[in-house]
């Protein structure tokens, strides 16, 4: 028994090296003083971190990414919270179908979503590119908002809500004063998960670029096609720090079981 576990442990260690090693390597190369990406780095320097701010497009697309993710999140909350509430509060005919429709944006290949949105939102509906980008990101965030808040609501005791209603509080007041505070951590976790999903998105943003409009991941892709210096490694390092912080907060708010239970 013992022996088997040592073998298994060793195997798992190797798999973890496969998963995390490349991320550690990219972090190390970001400190390279030379102009060519190398591992191990030939010294220590922060010049490529400074270079991020010298290439104007990086701060600019970072700002676009943040604004799109936050605004899209807000829209997805406005559309998603009422839907998640209705789907977990009431039982009615066609509920499963509706649930499937709300979760469907994760099932459609991202590149297909991006292309069809370009074709219709921009070309047929004549929406400005920035609006199209925002709508596209809202669509892909919606399933995450609904799923995480839905699972938060499924452990909420609706008897408390009934009590407030029967004591004379209006339905809106009850929702904001009774239901919402109880699922607060679920909502924050949903916002963070949706934020990462949108912030890292490539498939939609790829089709929604225009003069002065692009997101950070697309700018990174374009940069990699032309240069192979450590700037991208430096950005990667910063993005990983951001990811780690957000993940830590998500774990504090609702544990990691959301990820293992699908």
């Amino acid at each position: 028994m013992r022996n088997k576990h040592i073998g298994l442990g060793l195997f798992s260690l190797l798999v973890y090296i496969f998963l995390l090693g490349p991320l550690l390597i990219i972090s190390a190369t970001s400190f390279e003083p030379g102009t060519v990406l190398k591992f191990p780095p030939s010294g220590f320097s922060l010049q490529w971190y400074q270079n991020i701010f010298k290439v104007e497009l990086f701060p600019q697309t970072f700002k676009t990414s943040i604004v799109i993710s936050l605004l899209g999140n807000l829209l997805a909350l406005l559309l998603g919270v009422p839907a998640a509430y209705a789907l977990s509060r009431f039982s009615f005919r066609g509920k499963d179908t509706l649930n499937a429709i709300f979760l469907s944006p994760v099932l459609i290949p991202g590149i297909v979503l991006g292309f069809t949105m370009l074709k219709y939102l921009i070309v047929v509906y004549h929406l400005p590119i920035y609006t199209g980008l925002l709508i596209g990101h809202t669509v892909i965030m919606l399933p995450f908002i609904i799923r995480v808040i839905g699972s938060s609501l499924s452990s909420f005791d609706f008897a408390i809500e009934e009590a407030a209603l029967s004591l004379g509080a209006g339905p809106l007041r009850t929702f904001f004063k009774v239901v919402l505070p109880n699922i607060r951590s679920g909502i924050i976790a949903a916002v963070l998960i949706a934020f990462l999903e949108s912030f890292n998105n490539v498939d939609i943003s790829l089709f929604m670029t225009g003069p002065g409009i692009s997101t950070l991941p697309i700018q990174m892709l374009t940069y990699v096609e032309n240069y192979f210096d450590p700037t991208i490694a430096a950005i990667s390092m910063l993005l990983m720090i951001l990811t780690a912080v957000l993940m830590f907060v998500i774990e504090r708010l609702m544990g990691l079981s959301y990820f293992t239970k699908r």
Partner: peptide
């Protein structure tokens, strides 16, 4: 440790393999 790479940008992860 398994979920962290999942939440990391796919651009970052693919780029690391180029290196």
């Amino acid at each position: 440790l398994a979920i962290f790479p999942l939440l990391t940008s796919p651009v970052v992860r693919s780029f690391s393999w180029m290196v």
